[in-house]
Amino acid sequence: MWKTVLRRVLIMIPEVIVLSVLVFLLAKAMPGDPFTGSIGPHTSAAQIHQLKVQAGLYNPWYQQYWNWVVHLFHGNLGTSFQYQEPVTRIIGERAINTVWLALFTMVLTYAIAIPMGLYAGRHQNHIGDNIIRVYTFVTMAIPPFVILLIALWIFGYVLGWAPTTGSVSATASGTMGTVLSRLQHIILPGLVASLTGTVNIVQYLRSEVIDAKHSDYVRTARSKGVPTTNVFRHHILRNSLLPIAAFAGYSITGLLGGSVVTEMIFSYPGMGLLFLNSISYRDYTVITALVLLYGLLNLLGTLLSDIILTAVDPRVRVQ
């Protein structure tokens, strides 16, 4: 198995290189250069030229790319025009917020979706299953931002149970206080995001369970005299959770990218909101850095899913 994983990681190397080249070329194609915004009206053309030569902007593209990569490894992604701060620091701050929200959403999503999907599949067409199906259809029919707005309005403004903006209260003090304040801020967006996120998993898991129930190997298990509960526990459960587990890799890295909609509605200072703001302010260095990060997260998600699949499915190991 470790061989497969190692090979899978090695395959990622060329992917990362291609990704970085693409992102670099994208950044080059954008208007402006690192001095845009920092140059005053009194700087002469000769001085600008001098600065550009020093920065190596007239070098061939591959040399520039190499410099960029070296900077990248030193954690230097340039300076944001908008904030006049290193991009790494800006993203770093936002990333902490997003990780909190992402992990919370993820845990909640699976904690809700797995029991629901298993129950619905096991008790197909019973009352509980019908209620779950109505829930999934309704949630799927309403766009997430509508649900988010309604939740914000009811719980945030009308009832005042949860804060409506920010990630941590400025008045929070001490470790405990900060953590509690953070939880308070993510509870509403996390809950709503996970409720909408469960829908796909519930439906998928439900149909996986139903398929497994009618499979030949379950019939074999029953003909061995295995009691229904144990057939479910030892045969149906694992087999139908397998694709869900594999999907978890994508979904965690997807969440780490930050959700634009959720973060915007709750004014939650995460990566999604940062990305949106950077685009509206044409903050190219931040955009470039985020695109690179999203690309990497995507590759990592596929890697993670493949590793999970290799770990749980013996059929994949051999191939």
Binding site: S215, Y217, P227, N239, V312
Partner: peptide, 22 residues
């Protein structure tokens, strides 16, 4: 369940799908 598997055993047609792949 006390009879199935203990007193009556069953052999199925398609041996690949009749076995749990995992």
């Amino acid at each position: 369940n006390k009879i199935r598997g203990a007193k009556i055993g069953m052999i199925f047609q398609d041996p690949l799908s009749a076995l749990n792949p995992l």
